[in-house]
Design a protein around this nucleic acid. Sequence first.
DNA 1: ATGAGGCTTCCCATGATGGGAAGGTCAAGG
DNA 2: CCTTGACCTTCCCATCATGGGAAGCCTCAT
Lengths: 146, 146
Amino acid sequence: MNIGEAAAASGVSAKMIRYYEQIGLVAGVARTEAGYRVYSTSDVHRLRFIRRARDLGFSVKEISELLALWADRDRASADVKRIATTHIADLEEKMRQIREMVNTLRHLADHCHGDDRPHCPILDNLAQGDLDEAQRNRAARRPARV
Amino acid sequence: MNIGEAAAASGVSAKMIRYYEQIGLVAGVARTEAGYRVYSTSDVHRLRFIRRARDLGFSVKEISELLALWADRDRASADVKRIATTHIADLEEKMRQIREMVNTLRHLADHCHGDDRPHCPILDNLAQGDLDEAQRNRAARRPARV
DNA sequence: ATGAGGCTTCCCATGATGGGAAGGTCAAGG
DNA sequence: CCTTGACCTTCCCATCATGGGAAGCCTCAT
């Protein structure tokens, strides 16, 4: 199987397959005499695993650990679960930060007439940058940055 | 005021102040004979505006539009509100995607014993990558990628 | 044998941020 | 007056995952 077919079969673009090989996430595969990469079905399985893990928001580093555990038949499920729960916590933290932004923004937008007149609480808030709820929270537990 | 003081006063790092100048988000400021940047209080206000907008998740591009509206006394508040509500929608979409990931992951993690035994539904799911809820949704409305 | 389409590598760009090096400047204190 | 330390300058590099595109080679079907 050429890289294009492997891409179609795994849902990972050819570009990304080469990239994953370059950074060592997948081992270099066999090549034809002409230098074309050749993929087996188990290579494709591996790529699909990666694809699915990416879809669940895991970083390449985490996926690398997950792949190692996947390959290790004697792994402890606790090790897998630890990675997953840590990731869940990361995602939840991100969600919390976004929710805070949305709350603040929605509050401001609700008080903005949104007509031809220039007065706008949104700009007022950005300009004065007073310590409102979101900002106090941010100050409390740096670093924020979503 | 030197860049260091402006950074402290605005909450924007000196690095980022230079970057914002470079990409044209803030105009080049006055310089001393020696080449040091000199900031006025209104420069600092502008930086604080940027800082606050970044904290609310606005992109540099959006902030550039917001700054233009801020400077325009005849703006229509509708223009500001449009930017804000679009941004809110973006954030909510991101939240939705993250929530989906979390739901799937939490479901999997809940069914993982997390002990010494190797069996693990998390890896099973990644490996088989069957079309579960999250994946069908993703397939329905590409592009996903959070 | 020719053309289309696939493959290769290599370089560049994204977005916002930080790190760090090499070198110039300024102010305070000896 | 000179030194020293804290600041400033520019320039380059790295992040993270992804895509775009060019130049050139390969393969298969016509």
